[in-house]
Design a binder for these strands. Sequence first.
DNA 1: AAAAAAGCCAACCGCAGGCTG
DNA 2: CCAGCCTGCGGTTGGCTTTTT
Length: 302
Amino acid sequence: MGRQPCCDKVGLKKGPWSAEEDQKLINFILTNGQCCWRALPKLAGLLRCGKSCRLRWTNYLRPDLKRGLLSEDEEKMVIDLHAQLGNRWSKIASHLPGRTDNEIKNHWNTHIKKKLKKMGIDPLTHMPLSITTSEPQQEQEQEQKIDKSPKELPETSLQSTITEAKEEEKSMTSAILDPTMDTMMLMMDDIDGFCTDEVPLIEPHEILVPGTNHAPSSTSSSCNSSKLLEELQLPDFDWPTDCYTSNGNNDGLGLWDDDFNHWEDLLGDRPKVAVDDDLLSSAHFQCPTKMPFEQEYSWTFT
DNA sequence: AAAAAAGCCAACCGCAGGCTG
DNA sequence: CCAGCCTGCGGTTGGCTTTTT
């Protein structure tokens, strides 16, 4: 028996999302949370398949996403993780809060590959190009091989690394028995003893919200917070009071301006809230509680 | 200034695997 | 154990934008 399509494709819209569709999706998820994606489009009044909705949400609308180019540190992490995990973009993305697998994949293909090649490093093997590519044809063949699933590869040292990484994902502390070790160690040094175990994984309670950043306790911003809460039509519940203000570093607790702007665009047909730019650039959110509507996202301004 | 080429990224597609009845 | 449903993943594509000729 053939597999059912993810949804009835007849009459469904494809292609770029309109602002109106985004709005509907956001409103629905904020109100009801992420229920089953298959049913969501109908419930939300969207002529899209559930898969498309999920993708749009996870890759673009999710409020904890960082926007904009990856920072140098993030790039280093991607390179390092790619050396260990291969093209397992979702795994790599899980180590970079606020970044999606799609984003990292695109960035890898459009930026990092080129950079590494320029530096004389084979982006596939993470080894010096002079060693890995004696002939262009070989390079191509190698590229094709490695781009495929690791299962199809001969048991090369790289693959054994990947296999190890799979097996020891939980404890990625093991020494990696791989000729790329030198390169990786250099990278590790570059990022000051970075260890993937130490990368903070974002938890549901840590998801950041690009809404108003103003902590109730921090100056006059509290009224903006509550206003924006109304704007976002968030469910009514208690907001934790433990607040946190960043020092403005990009420390994984969320980029601010772009996110806010994007959401403001989406909410553009509603009255806007005046926001102090200085506060904007220096504030973060945290959401330490479960949503009252049983969802992963709970918006808390910290 | 116009056309062509290259770059970029959002979105789609199909498969794999987990879950449930 | 099995079939069907659902979600997640990685590869690929299409189209818009930017750069080059």
